[in-house]
């Protein structure tokens, strides 16, 4: 009985997870990234459902390890990580807070139009694509025609 009452609430666990940074883009959390799809208690086991971003993204293994480490640090020892590939991850799952943080960090957030709305450095709309791929699988490489800075654009998928 005492064990059951000492179980942290689901809301509490989401808060803890929201403090775990993305390993590649540490300015946003794993919750902002939208990869954590579900958190639930199955009896005494905490089940966390994770959806990977890109199939081959090397950060996926690190993300799982970081979730496990964070939750163990908060005293959760009975933990199960479940990988779920359907429905596939989409940039629609990025939180509004996460998108704002991305832009503040110098990464243009995804846009349904398929390209960045403005330069994340100076705000100019005079931007052009350098390459469809960038420093990680989730980003493309763009540049600004006004401040001349290159920048990453978070691909919209």
């Amino acid at each position: 009985m005492s064990e059951m009452t000492s179980q942290p609430s689901i809301a509490q666990i989401w808060d803890w997870l929201d403090a775990v940074p993305d390993p590649e883009i540490p300015v946003i959390s794993l919750v902002d990234l939208g990869v954590i799809r579900d958190v639930a208690w199955a009896d005494t086991t905490l089940v966390v459902t994770v959806t990977p971003t890109y199939s081959g993204c090397p950060a996926t293994a690190v993300i799982n390890l970081d979730i496990e480490t964070a939750l163990r640090d908060h005293g959760i020892s009975d933990l199960q990580l479940k990988t779920q590939i359907a429905p596939p991850w989409t940039t629609d799952w990025l939180s509004e807070k996460g998108k704002a943080k991305l832009e503040g960090y110098g990464i243009a957030p995804p846009q349904p139009s398929g390209g960045p709305q403005r330069c994340p450095q100076c705000g100019s709309k005079n931007v052009s694509k350098v390459s469809q791929f960038g420093s990680t699988p989730c980003k493309a490489h763009w540049r600004c025609g006004d401040c001349l800075e290159p920048f990453d654009y978070f691909k919209c998928i």
């Binding site: 890109y54 199939s55 081959g56 350098v130 390459s131 469809q132 791929f133 960038g134 699988p137």
Partner: peptide, 20 residues
């Protein structure tokens, strides 16, 4: 460099799909 990165990322996606 841009093409190098693009090719490496394409390869990475393909290898990731292979795992599935």
């Amino acid at each position: 460099l841009e093409e190098d990165i693009a090719l490496a990322n394409t390869a990475l996606d393909l290898i990731g799909q292979t795992q599935m």
